[in-house]
């Protein structure tokens, strides 16, 4: 039931409700999942299997998983790579030239 290529929905965690594909079966109740979720190890108790099995090789790459999902017209949501914002030049504070202490005193004494 939980073989490689099985399409399922993650039911726990912050990615709950998202489509994912089993890419590799690990020891115990753990499988490697990919798809609309980050490629991570997941316990099979947190997955709800669907009746669809995609043609995906063992340990397939994320792109091939997304293509296989598109064939089954499941909209894949790829996270955009973060664009580095151009670093704004730090404004230098204008430091006024310090008046020599003597001049200041004259102003006061006038």
């Amino acid at each position: 039931m939980m073989e490689i290529g099985r399409l399922c929905i993650k039911t726990a965690g912050r990615n709950a409700g998202k489509h994912c594909v089993i890419v590799d079966t690990l020891e115990g109740n753990f499988v490697m999942i990919d798809g609309n979720v980050p490629r991570k190890r997941c316990n099979i108790r947190h997955l709800e299997p669907l009746p669809i099995v995609l043609k995906v090789k063992k340990g397939a790459s994320t792109d091939s998983v997304h293509e296989a999902m598109k064939k089954e017209n499941i909209n894949t949501r790829t996270t955009k790579p973060k664009t580095k914002k151009p670093v704004k030049p730090v404004k230098q504070r204008k430091i006024k030239a310090k008046q020599p202490a003597a001049e200041k005193k004259q102003k006061k004494s006038k």
Partner: peptide
């Protein structure tokens, strides 16, 4: 919490709700 239904359902009720929703769609 950052889960779906974060501040509304506890984690086990959220899981049940998602599983029911998936099964009802099938």
């Amino acid at each position: 919490p950052e889960r779906p239904y974060g501040g509304a359902l506890c984690s086990s009720c959220m899981r049940k709700a998602i599983v029911e929703k998936v099964r009802s769609e099938l």
